[in-house]
């Protein structure tokens, strides 16, 4: 099944640190948001494989905006 890693704070997408096909562990940083000169780690809540990267550098994000799409086990 698919799970989406979303923006946890509003701000700019500073970088996405995973690529399509990467294996991701629960708790691993997948992207960074910049808000008022604070870099905020966006961590995966699941073990899985990156199906697609939705956000790119400089994207303006609101809370809940999709950043990375994962394929996870059904029990993942």
């Amino acid at each position: 099944m698919e799970k989406i890693v979303t923006a946890i704070m509003p701000g700019l997408c500073a970088r996405v640190v995973v690529s399509e096909g990467d294996k991701v562990a629960k708790g691993q940083e997948v992207a960074v948001i910049n808000c008022m000169k604070t870099e905020i780690s966006v961590n995966s809540e699941y073990d899985g494989i990156v199906k697609s990267v939705v956000s790119k550098e400089w994207d303006e994000l609101q809370v809940g905006d999709p950043m990375v799409l994962l394929t996870v086990d059904n029990n993942g």
Partner: peptide, 19 residues
């Protein structure tokens, strides 16, 4: 949060946060 003296930069700050 830049700290300036007469418009010139004296200090800079950068933060990182995990949630």
């Amino acid at each position: 949060n830049d700290i300036l003296v007469e418009g010139r930069k004296l200090c800079g700050m950068l933060s990182e946060m995990e949630v």
